[in-house]
Nucleic acid binder design. Structure first.
Lengths: 204, 204
DNA sequence: CGCGTTCTGATGCACTTGCATCGTATCGGC
DNA sequence: GCCGATACGATGCAAGTGCATCAGAACGCG
């Protein structure tokens, strides 16, 4: 075996470059040459890592969704305090909405992919799958809240999860569009979560 | 004066073609040639109608926002029955979310523009302005609902309007991404509106 | 009718695109 | 130490891009 390169590492590196470019100037600004330059590899390397441009974009999306999903899942798995359902819920949502300042880039990219979904079935499939996972996650959180008594027992968790997820995505879009700051969006999100809780905090 | 052409009419025709193309294959698939073909005019005509491609895209966005805003405003202006605040609110939101089947195309286009906002300041400005207008509209509707007693008087109309608008946009995104059908999205939206009303319909 | 202005569609141009090709550098196995 | 397989980066290529240009058609006005 000749020269050894960590292919997966390179693919990830390229995916990062793709995301950077999309966030900076939109999806149509992504060319193989620019990606190669951004990733500081040769164009040939990009072409050997991905058979086609669409494959590359798809991998970048999967890279992003995996990152977001994992962070959300981790946050839940790492929780030990039992009655934290309320904060758990709002923190997870805030993370899904990519509202933190350091997630701006990811928010742009996510939105770009969603907007591109109608043009690519494979892309749409990945998005659909991710949304389903996130919805499940929220449902689990709500059910957990119902167990701890923080959330009304008669609440339709599935429905509420849909609403919360949509709200999070909408706020993402509004921040990207410049209609909201992250802080404002966060406040709106928090208020919605409070409505779900049986005892709104702060005004006993 | 020689040959007379309705320039505005032509610009609108081209804007329609732009929207069709964006909806079909995304923003990066919009080329002057394709637009000309879709609008069934010559490429020269497109170039004379718009100095540059960006101008064309910007006009298409303004064309879209104006259409959406106008339809929403009209719906309100045309209302004569006084206590319709509840239905008025949900219908307006449903329209803003572009959930009707015939608005799918516009939903795609809208999302594409939002996703592109970070890459173009002029575009972002138009979006921001439109969002502000829509927010105002919702605030007015909520205040009206408070006048008629359908909406709790102590509700923070501005905050609630933000939440509703974000929810509507999020649902739009979810429908475009294939995570929801229009019907499901509509149900989620309706449920959220019901929560705003003092007396939820159907189970009083 | 014929002039002059406006509009028109085709073509040119420099450039970028995604992808294919190819000679070479780099390493493991013998 | 050398062979052969592999990864590498540069270059080629046809197609498509936005925009500029231009000869001429179409029409109001004298």
């Amino acid at each position: 075996m000749p020269r050894q390169v960590d292919h997966e590492e390179r693919r990830r590196r390229i995916a990062e470059a793709v995301c950077t470019l999309i966030a900076r100037s939109g999806m149509e600004a992504v060319s193989l040459r620019d990606v190669a330059a951004q990733a500081e590899v040769s164009m040939g390397a990009v072409q050997r890592s991905f058979r086609t441009k669409e494959d590359m974009l798809l991998f970048a999306l999967e890279h992003l969704t995996q990152y977001v999903s994992e962070r959300a899942e981790q946050r839940i798995a790492a929780t030990s305090t039992p009655q934290a359902a309320a904060t758990l819920l709002s923190h997870t949502l805030a993370e899904l909405a990519l509202l933190e300042e350091e997630s701006r880039r990811q928010a742009h990219v996510w939105l770009a992919f969603v907007a591109h979904a109608p043009a690519s079935e494979r892309l749409a499939a990945v998005l659909k799958d991710t949304y389903a996972k996130l919805h499940d996650l929220l449902v689990r959180l709500l059910r957990y809240g119902q167990d701890t008594g923080e959330v009304a027992a008669d609440l339709d968790a599935a429905r509420e999860a849909h609403a919360l997820l949509a709200l999070a995505d909408g706020l993402t879009a509004h921040v990207v569009a410049g209609h909201h700051s992250s802080a404002t969006a966060l406040a709106v999100l928090q208020r919605q979560v409070d409505q779900v809780l049986v005892e709104p905090p702060g005004n006993g």
